[in-house]
Every structure is written in C-alpha cells, then in structure tokens.
C-alpha cells in the first residue's frame, strides 16, 4: 500500500517537473510547479515528517509561488509566450543530465537505508515529528540554525539596500 502511494507520488513529481520545463506559457509552468510542491509534501507525510510537509506547503506553495506569479505579472510576458523555449546547446545539457542520472542511480545502492543515530522511524513517530525536529534544531544543530538566521538578515538588508533611492549630489 505504502509502495503504491510512493510510486504515485514519485511519478507525479517527475511528470510535473517535466511539465514545468517544457511548458510554453509561464503561468502554466507555475501551476504545474504548484502541483509538484503538493506531491513533494505528500512524500514528506509518508516519511513521518508532517512538520516538513506543512512548511513545504506554507513556504513553497504559499509564499514562493506567489512570488513567481508576481514576477510573471510584472514582466507582462504575453509576447514572449510563443518564443523558443529551449536554448542552444540543449543536447549537451541533456547528455550531462542523463549521465548525472545514471551515476545518481548507481549511488543509491550505497546509501545507508536505516536511520542512524537515536532518531529511528519508531522514535520519531513516538515523540512526534515537530517536537523531535524542534528539539534537535535547538540543541544539536543550534549553531547552523543561528547562522541561517544571519543569512536571512543579510537577505533583508540587501533587499532594502538594492531598492533604496539613488544618492543625490
């Protein structure tokens, strides 16, 4: 049963991603991306990661997608819809991507499938995912967490600086 769901989600994610790339109309691409985000959230749910699934929908489907739509609105792309959607040299890109895919698939067999460390699947579902994630984030991974906050600060300051009025004189 679980495998069946996984196969459905996996196929849909791949299909939607391809549709995002080959779509000629940017608005359609964005909508396909929305569908893809929901399916990724589905995969997270299957992994007992309900918190990640929720943030995936709130952050990606909610915020980032709206941002994409804003950009498309501002660009007023009506004329460019018919333009070529593949750039020169795409065969080389495809070859590299396929090579990448093959090596990635080969790598999968080497992966440690079992969870290492104290957080086994049973333990996560016992403590609940949100609590487990919060606990780890604020203890073991406190340093990376704080550094991430600095990155956000720089992003805010940078956005303000780049949007400021031009200096006179």
């Amino acid at each position: 049963m679980v495998e069946l769901f996984f196969i459905y989600f996996a196929i849909m994610i791949v299909f939607c991603s391809v549709m995002v790339v080959i779509g000629k109309n940017p608005v359609h691409s964005v909508l396909w991306m929305l569908v893809m985000f929901f399916h990724v959230a589905g995969v997270y749910l299957m992994l007992n990661a309900e918190f990640l699934a929720a943030t995936q929908i709130i952050v990606y489907a909610g915020a980032i997608l709206v941002l994409f739509l804003f950009v498309i609105m501002l660009l007023n792309l009506r004329d460019e819809i018919v333009s070529e959607h593949s750039v020169d040299g795409w065969p080389a890109g495809l070859a590299i991507a396929l090579g990448f895919l093959i090596v990635s698939v080969l790598s999968l067999v080497g992966f440690t499938v079992k969870a290492t460390g104290p957080w086994s699947i049973e333990e996560v579902s016992r403590v609940t995912h949100t609590k487990a994630l919060g606990g780890v984030l604020y203890t073991e991974y406190l340093l990376p967490f704080e550094v991430a906050s600095l990155i956000l600060l720089v992003a805010i300051v940078g956005a303000v600086v780049l949007a400021k009025k031009r200096l006179k004189s």
């Binding site: 990376p144 550094v147 991430a148 720089v154 300051v157 940078g158 780049l162």
Partner: peptide
C-alpha cells in the same frame, strides 16, 4: 561539519552578490 560549512558559504556568497550590485 558540512552543514555549517554550507551555511557559512551562503552567508559569504549572498553578501558578495549584494556588494557586486
């Protein structure tokens, strides 16, 4: 740790992108 390394790299890079503009 590779995660700290990546975050430090992003902090450095993001600031440099802003400065270049």
């Amino acid at each position: 740790d590779l995660i700290v390394l990546y975050l430090g790299l992003e902090l450095m890079a993001l600031s440099t992108y802003i400065l270049a503009a």
